[in-house]
Amino acid sequence: MSTPEPRVLRYVEALREATDLAMAADPSVFLFGLDVDDHLGIQGSTKGLQQKYGPDRVFTTPLSEDAMTGLAIGAAMAGLRPIHVHIRMDFLLLCMNQLVNIAAKARYMWGGQVSVPLVVRSMIGKSWGQGAQHSQGLHALFMHVPGLKVVAPANAHDAKGCLLAAIADDNPVIFMEHRLLYPTETPVPEGAYAVPPGRARLCTRGDDVTIVGVSNMVQEAVRAAALLAEAGIAAEVVDPVWLRPLDVDTIVESASRTGRLLVVDNGWTTCGASAEIVAAVVERTSETAGIRIRRLGFADTTCPTSPWLEADFYPTPRRIAEAAATLVHPERPPRLPEATRSASIQFRGPF
């Protein structure tokens, strides 16, 4: 008897399925945010949920991020489990006081008597010239704050499992979604399952260089690994999945074995997630480890609108591969094949 093919879902469909499962299992879960009830349903991630659960549990909001975040925090403190959808991570800057001074600190300030089980969904990533105010990956700001958890799933399987874990968590979770990941497909189990905080994932295995990617940079790193393989370099790609809490041990083990570490962030490198990852690795390895280290991220400038300038702003598979190859062979990096040969490769398991 032949084994049935695994069920494949798009990233955006996995987000919707996780929300549906959580709302069906727990009447305290509700979903709100600008345009969640629109016919397009936030790229499809909330499509049909209002029709299924009604306008009391799925509803749109005014353009008032600060006030609506306050509503979400109050509802969470009162025993509900809100999922607050923000179309762009940039817009979280409009509710930073609510998130940083109220949501993140309430449990501590009330001696554990108050919980804030709040999920804040926010999108990042380029598309049709989003420009300076709609392209930012601000996850490092939230990683800095005790009391907040931060997650950046890079495939559909983890998008579903991380969202279910975040909804069940009694702490506020910043859930980061890269819009270029939305159409990517991965085998996804039908039932409920969790991808819990604090566990990184090995996407490819290799002994020559460790590449840590954040969000969509995981997929770009997998494509870079394919280019490196053609040049005889075996790259191990690590997806942190959860950025806070961060699974440093898995990264340290890999980097200690390969002796080379490249961290590719979906944000700027200055005071960013890549800086934290590198610092954590250095602190946990001996002075004699001799790990060669490099970081890549956004160009150190405001994000341009022009696609031609965007091409130089974001890390690409070829630039990632070139940086990794230089770590492995600093004297004479090998010649790499054209990046177009790996453009369609994406990480699809194992899970």
Rank of each mutant, 00 (worst) to 15 (best):
G79D: 08
Y314Q: 09
D35S: 11
A200C: 10
V29F: 06
L80C: 13
T210H: 06
G54M: 10
R294E: 12
V214L: 09
A156G: 08
S286Y: 01
R348I: 14
G125S: 12
R201C: 07
M23I: 08
S256P: 01
I211D: 03
V209M: 10
L163I: 08
R295C: 15
D207A: 11
T204F: 04
A22G: 07
P183N: 11
P245W: 01
K160R: 09
H86Y: 10
K105W: 07
E276H: 05
G79P: 10
G206Y: 03
H134D: 12
N155I: 06
S127P: 00
G44Y: 05
D169V: 00
E310R: 02
S342H: 04
P172A: 04
M77H: 04
M1S: 15
V282P: 10
H329L: 06
V195G: 10
I293P: 13
F142K: 09
T316V: 00
S115E: 10
L163P: 09
D300A: 15
S254L: 07
R341Y: 00
A132W: 14
V188M: 06
T340H: 14
K160L: 08
A24E: 14
R107P: 03
L118V: 00
M23L: 12
M23F: 09
S342Y: 05
G267K: 02
R57P: 07
S256H: 11
S274Q: 06
R88M: 14
F91M: 13
R199F: 14
L141Q: 15
A104H: 03
P245E: 04
V328I: 04
V248T: 15
D208G: 00
L141T: 12
A299V: 08
P62K: 11
E177Q: 02
R7N: 11
V264S: 00
S64F: 02
C203E: 01
A165M: 01
G111Y: 07
A67S: 14
N97Y: 01
G44Q: 10
T19Y: 03
H84L: 15
D158W: 05
N155G: 08
P117M: 01
T288F: 14
Y11S: 06
R295Y: 05
A152N: 06
P172C: 07
N171A: 15
I293S: 01
R332L: 12
G137C: 02
E322V: 10
P337K: 02
W128S: 09
E230N: 11
I233G: 06
Q346F: 14
T204I: 08
V212L: 05
S122C: 15
N171G: 13
V120C: 03
M23K: 08
Y314D: 01
V151C: 09
S306K: 13
T61N: 04
R205M: 07
V100P: 05
M68L: 11
T285K: 01
S256M: 06
L227M: 03
S122Q: 12
L296S: 14
W308N: 06
S256V: 07
A192F: 09
L31Q: 11
P317A: 14
A18P: 11
C303A: 15
P4S: 09
G349K: 05
P304A: 12
E190W: 06
V85E: 04
V281Q: 12
